[in-house]
């Protein structure tokens, strides 16, 4: 049986929270001896009220931009004391793509030996679902009531350009793929970046029971690619191999129609999103491992 002790029952998260699913899968992948650095976000709140804590791992709650520097110090301290502990930075998409990006980039440049895990729910969900750099084109949020005009910031590709040893993307809808990637990241020395898509029922406006279904649909419609970048080449996961050809992709409308945040998107907006997905996969196929 896999270990799932990183999350205790009775968290303060909303029903159907995908970040809790991701947290349980993290412990299935890494087991014991993990230290978490939790950057401000939903995950700081889901831990509940003192004196109890819902996370079973030793976790340090810290401000947005201070996560990667704190983790840099932490892994060095563990190394100095000869303890084999995996340090994981647990950050939301706002803490990764907008506010904490400078220190993330700095830690990647220094090639610090820890895992940076970004749980991407595509908005600042903790403070009410405002637009972040990771929000896709056409999505409604309280700060973009007519739909966001720009495209999603592609953090995995930015991290690939930092030339770090390991970059991977995952989705909570495909647990085995996610667990395998985190396990592989643990074996590599240097800066590891894992980006996991976590569809949030209350920000994306769908029924909480369909969290896993939407996470699977995002991959099947090729909106979210599953790949890993290692040794200078991209390797596409088996779940995403059908996306390399345009004819075999599932129609994007299956993914958009299930969510309330895309209810104002028009035909032109869907075309723009499809063009974005085409360009994304062209970019992936240029660096593909054959």
């Amino acid at each position: 049986m896999l270990n799932d002790t990183s999350l205790m029952s009775g968290t303060s998260a909303c029903p159907g929270c995908p970040e809790n699913i991701a947290m349980r899968m993290l412990s299935m992948a890494l087991g014991k001896d993990v230290a978490l650095v939790v950057i401000a976000g939903c995950s700081s709140v889901t831990q509940g009220l003192a004196p109890k804590n819902a996370y079973g791992y030793a976790s340090l709650n810290i401000a947005f931009a201070a996560g990667p520097p704190a983790a840099s110090g932490m892994w060095r301290a563990y190394k100095r004391r000869n303890r084999d502990v995996t340090v994981v930075v647990w950050a939301g998409d706002g803490g990764t793509s907008d506010i904490g990006f400078a220190s993330l980039s700095g830690a990647a440049e220094r090639n610090e030996d820890f895992i940076y895990l970004c749980v991407d729910n595509e908005a600042y969900m903790n403070t009410g679902g405002h637009r972040s750099g990771s929000t896709p084109h056409g999505a409604l949020t309280p700060t973009t009531p007519e739909g966001k005009s720009g495209n999603k910031k592609e953090i995995p590709f930015i991290m690939i350009d930092h030339n770090i040893p390991y970059v991977a993307t995952a989705s909570v809808g495909y647990p085995h793929d996610f667990i395998d990637k985190v396990r592989e990241a643990k074996t590599i020395r240097g800066f590891k970046y894992v980006h996991v898509l976590t569809p949030d029922p209350y920000g994306w406006l769908f029924d909480p029971s369909r969290t896993a279904e939407v996470a699977k649909l995002a991959v099947q419609t090729c909106y979210w690619p599953l790949f890993k970048w290692k040794d200078g080449r991209i390797e596409v996961s088996p779940e995403s191999l059908h996306c390399l050809k345009k004819e075999t992709r599932r129609p994007l409308k299956d993914f958009l129609s299930i969510q309330g945040r895309f209810k104002k998107i028009d035909e032109k907006g869907i075309e723009d999103l499809e063009r974005y997905i085409d360009e994304l996969w062209e970019r992936i196929s240029l660096n593909l491992k054959r």
Partner: peptide
């Protein structure tokens, strides 16, 4: 506890969440 903001892992940190159901 009064001097160090340290918590311990435990069930029900957010309360008896079964009542939300």
């Amino acid at each position: 506890y009064q001097y160090f903001p340290i918590t311990v892992p435990g069930k029900g940190a957010g309360g008896q969440t079964g009542t939300w159901r």
